[in-house]
């Protein structure tokens, strides 16, 4: 594999031949970490090396555990949301029906000259679902 190294600004290039064995090692590393060969070569050629601060494997497991928890909660959340939507719709229909019944009740009591007792709790509930 022929490698060309160029500066960010300016002219000039360096050409290097990388043998098959070294190239295979670079590619293997790239596959293991999910990065391109170019990325690995850039790290080496720029000399921008870093060292991990902690235990990457442990961190990997913690992330996996969190992903699992999120998935479980999302699995629980979706059907509950659907059920809650259903009850809300049921309550909306009930609120419409109750609103009609309350109006009829007030009218009938007025015709019969009876005192109508307002049910504030019920009216608030109807308003909420409408």
């Amino acid at each position: 594999m022929r490698l060309k190294i160029k500066p960010e600004r300016g002219l000039g290039k360096i050409e290097v031949e990388i043998d098959e064995d070294l190239w295979r090692r670079i590619r293997g590393l790239g596959e293991r970490y999910g990065v391109s060969e170019g990325h690995i070569l850039r790290i080496i050629l720029t000399g921008e090396f870093r060292i991990p601060e902690g235990n990457v494997e442990k961190l990997e497991n913690e992330v996996k555990e969190l992903e699992k928890k999120v998935y479980e909660l999302e699995k629980k959340w979706a059907p509950l949301r659907y059920k809650a939507y259903g009850v809300r719709e049921d309550n909306k229909i009930l609120a419409i029906k109750l609103s009609g019944l309350l109006a009829e009740n007030t009218q009938l009591k007025r015709f019969l000259r009876k005192k109508a007792k307002p049910n504030f709790e019920l009216r608030k509930l109807i308003e909420y679902y409408l």
């Binding site: 670079i26 990065v35 090396f49 060292i51």
Partner: peptide, 16 residues
């Protein structure tokens, strides 16, 4: 390049 492959791997670990 050859001598710094190990360091590159450590860097990839740090990036991860």
């Amino acid at each position: 390049i050859e001598e710094n492959l190990e360091k590159a791997e450590e860097t990839l670990k740090a990036e991860r």
